[in-house]
Amino acid sequence: MSDERSARLPHAFTTPGSSSFLDFVSSHAPHLLPGRRDGDFAAPAVPHATTIVALQVDGGVVMAGDRRATAGSMIAHREIEKVFPADELSAVGIAGTAGIAIELVRMFQLELEHYEKIEGTLLSLEGKANRLSTMIRGNLGLAMQGLAVVPLFAGYDVARATGRIFSYDVTGGRYEERDHHSVGSGSVFARGALKKLWRPGLSPADGVRVAVEALYDAADDDSATGGPDAVRRIWPVVASVTAAGYVRVADDDLDPVVAAILADRADRLGGPRA
C-alpha cells in the first residue's frame, strides 16, 4: 500500500468518531497505556502514596493530601504531590502505587483536555467520574498483583452548582460520597477527624483548616502518612475547587493554618473539640 510507505498521518489519526484519547491510544499505541505490563510477578517494595481527604464546602470542595511516599517501612519521598488538577473544575487525589497512580493521573488529565478540545465543550462531572472509573478498571490485573491505585475524585458540578466527591475501589466501582471522604492508609483516622470537624456550609477557608487537621490526625497514628514538616517547611498539598476553578492553596497561606494547628495541639493533643 502506498499509504503505508508515505509519511502522511496514519489512518488512526484521521478516523472520525471518538473524542476519547484513551480509546485512541488503546487502538494506535497500546504500549503507552498506564499499567500495561506483561508477565506474572510479585510486586516489589515500590513507593506508595498514602492519605487523601476531600470535603464539601460552601460553593465547592476542598481536597488535601499529605506529602509522604513509603516503600515498605522506609520513607521513599518526603514531598511527593498526590493532589492534582484533573481539569479547570475538578481535582484528583491518589493513594496506592505511586508510579502507576501518577501515570494514570497524567492520562486522566489528558483524556479530559482531549475531549474538551475535540468536542469544544467540557465533560459533565459524572462523565469525568465515569472515565476515571474505566481507567481504574483497566488496572485491575496489576491491582491483583499488589499494585493497586485508589483515587479520590472531586469537582464542581456546573449543572447543580455544587461540589461533589466520588470514591473508587480497585475494580473501578464508583461511589458518590456525601459531605466528605478520605482514602489511603491513614484514611481511618482522617475520617474520624472529618466526622467531628466537618459541618454543613463550611467556608472554603475553614475547609482548608479542617482538611489539614484531618491529615494531622492521620499522620499522628499512621506511619505512612507524613504530618506537616515544620523543619523543612513541607506542608500538605491543599486545593479548592469552586465555580472559579481549581486553586492550589499557596504554602505562604498554609503557614498560619499549620502554625495555628501546631500551637493548638501543644495545648490539647486531640485537636479542636467538635
Binding site: L9, A12, F13, T14, P16, F21, F24, V25, H28, A29, L32, R106, M107, L110, E113, H114, K117, I118
Partner: peptide, 17 residues
C-alpha cells in the same frame, strides 16, 4: 475538521509520550 482532530491527536500523543 478531520485534519484538526488528527492534529489534536498528534499533539496529545506526542506530549503524552
Amino acid at each position: 475538521e478531520n485534519l484538526r482532530v488528527a492534529g489534536v491527536r498528534y499533539a496529545d500523543l506526542k506530549g503524552y509520550s
